[in-house]
């Protein structure tokens, strides 16, 4: 058995979600090869080779893979897939974008956002916004899987000594091109890996009031999150959203302010260790945790 793991990275380092996916791969068992795909991403290879448990690091560095355009990345992974029993990726917006395309190109199903490995072919995953957990067995020859990062501890970043191999083949479909990208700049910790999160809902009232949470977060060294309602109201950008269709978080401490705890929001934060809810509105308080 061998596993191909598609790394999430920012062209300089691996993202923590990749390390969690390595842990999931270790639980499945077999050799683990890490694929770094992108444009200008070669620098990631050295640190990737040190991750415990990795056999080989494959680097596909080409303009065709800039911003991990799904059509091209999927075509590349399809070329590589033949020698693997499993293909894994973190369930980030990148992974969610190209992995189903990979699965369909290989004529196999995909198992989305697994939260535990039961055996090499059986996994658990949440359905209905996490209100039920499905145990899924894959009968496909190649198992295509995305992994929820918060459900697995990150693998050690030291101790491995993988070989690094550059891939020469280029898959360029010419179907899509990047026009622009607006990434939020912040010195705060990343939402999905933060130890402390301060989240706000519609109850914050407006953008100016929401900024109070920013100040609190800076004092606590916390990340700031939000409910869909707060994002829709324009208090904060979309990448703040926690929930069924936003980010899934599991911090040590979650402080929710002015939010009611709709099931769609709970789906994204209920694995938090300690939950503090602040709401003066009796009708809309965080009812589940009363």
């Amino acid at each position: 058995m061998a596993i191909l793991l598609i790394a999430e990275h920012d062209n300089t380092a691996l993202k923590s979600a990749t390390l969690s996916t390595v842990t999931a791969a270790t639980q499945i068992g077999g050799d683990i090869d890490l694929l770094i795909v992108g444009s200008g991403c070669s620098a990631v290879a050295d640190s990737a080779a040190k991750v415990a448990g990795v056999r080989k690091v494959l680097v596909a560095d080409n303009a065709a893979y800039d911003h991990e355009i799904a059509e091209n990345v999927a075509a590349l992974i399809k070329e590589l897939a033949g020698s693997y029993s499993h293909i894994l990726s973190p369930a980030t917006t990148n992974g969610k974008n190209f992995m189903p395309r990979v699965a369909a190109l290989l004529d196999v199903g995909q198992i989305s956002e697994i939260i535990s490995v039961e055996s090499a072919d059986t996994f658990k995953r949440p359905i209905y916004a996490g209100n039920a957990i499905a145990t899924v067995q894959s009968l496909d020859a190649i198992k295509v899987i995305t992994v929820r990062g918060t459900s697995f501890d990150p693998a050690a970043t030291e101790g491995g000594s993988a070989s690094v191999e550059k891939l020469e083949q280029v898959a360029n479909t010419g179907l899509s091109r990047l026009v622009s990208e607006e990434l939020a700049q912040s010195d705060r910790p990343e939402l999905t890996t933060a130890k402390v999160i301060v989240a706000g809902g519609r109850g914050m009232g407006d953008k100016a009031h929401f900024e109070m949470l920013d100040k609190l977060a800076d004092k606590l060294g916390a990340a700031v999150g939000a409910t869909r309602a707060a994002v829709d109201a324009g208090f904060v950008p979309n990448d703040y959203q926690i929930g069924q269709t936003g980010k899934v978080v599991a911090p040590e401490l979650y402080i929710g302010v002015g939010l009611s705890g709709a099931i769609q929001h709970l789906a994204g934060m209920k694995d938090s260790k300690v939950i503090v809810a602040i709401n003066k509105d009796e009708v809309h308080r965080f009812s589940k945790y009363d």
Partner: peptide, 22 residues
């Protein structure tokens, strides 16, 4: 919002050779 799979659109794009915007 039942199976929360987030797959079918990308798969259809692959099968038809179409581009995808997700």
């Amino acid at each position: 919002i039942d199976t929360d799979n987030n797959q079918t659109g990308q798969m259809l794009a692959a099968l038809t050779g179409m581009s995808q915007g997700t």
